[in-house]
Write a protein that binds this DNA or RNA. Sequence first.
DNA 1: GTAGGGCTACTCGGATAACGGGTGTCCGAGTCCTTGCGG
DNA 2: CCGCAAGGACTCGGACACCCGTTATCCGAGTAGCCCTAC
Lengths: 162, 162
Amino acid sequence: MKLNEGIEWGIHCCGLLATLPEGAALPTTKLAEFFDLPKDYLAKHLQHLSRAGLVNSSRGPGGGYSLARPADKIRLLDIVEAIDGKGPSFRCAEIRRRGPSAVGSECYQKDCCISRAMLRADAAWRQSLASVTLATLCDESKEDMPSEQFQKAQAWIEQEVG
Amino acid sequence: MKLNEGIEWGIHCCGLLATLPEGAALPTTKLAEFFDLPKDYLAKHLQHLSRAGLVNSSRGPGGGYSLARPADKIRLLDIVEAIDGKGPSFRCAEIRRRGPSAVGSECYQKDCCISRAMLRADAAWRQSLASVTLATLCDESKEDMPSEQFQKAQAWIEQEVG
DNA sequence: GTAGGGCTACTCGGATAACGGGTGTCCGAGTCCTTGCGG
DNA sequence: CCGCAAGGACTCGGACACCCGTTATCCGAGTAGCCCTAC
């Protein structure tokens, strides 16, 4: 049960894209530079976000990534699922159907209760992630962030986009 | 975000141990046989349960594993954490402190808001798992299980333990 | 001077290697029971 | 007949290989803007 680190990268990148002026885009190179991340590997994750429809991509000079919809319409869950996949964390192998006490599979009406419990937990996790939007995150971030960093970031964006 | 399959094995094994008569134990060999699992690899997970103090182990002939405390005092979370480790699923790499907009680390008072959101989700997951006890699980299991299987399982236990 | 075409630079996207942790297996450590021997 | 000790069988526990998925990297596909040329 370990989330891959690309998730953190993806969320941060979305957060940065959310602060961009309307119509502007940021290429992988710049995003990687801003967070000091390996460009090529970051590209892979951005690709996932693009395929999931969370960001738009445009090629060629001046191209890059931009949010596909307003930040308050993007849930944290969307980003996590885009990068990590939508499959549930627990996959029941139905081992109760094996071994000496097993009976014909037509006898098993319901999912095994263990599976159900694990899936409930999984749902709670997703529910929690779904309740947070990218917009919320950005607002919180502004409050938490040292003001000096906020200014530096703003200046950087200004320079890159403007 | 994928749980290793040993978790399912561990839970099922605990469930089986819970149905044993007081004082009885079941060795790895028998547990593996009951669920048709690779004995040696299962042993590894049982070892984790043992180290976590969820089950008692006794060596020698007639030895094996038994629950260390009543089934209603064992939470699903305990089993999951014993096998999967206690570390949170999300580990913040603090990438906000890197790149051109970073400022001195003494400026960062609070955890980054992304980390907090992920950790909240993680807590919700654990909360859900903590609300289920092994005893609850066993009761549910009895209801769900085909009656024929229940009888077969009882007979098997009778034979092995008795 | 202007319009059109080609070219270059820049960007994304998928295909391809390298590493690490989960997966699977083995052998040694420890314990209990059995059995044989001596009193 | 009873008690003790040695041996064997059984079990757990940790140490050792293997393999798939995450991590990391590369190169081709596509696009926009620019420049050069021709009219």
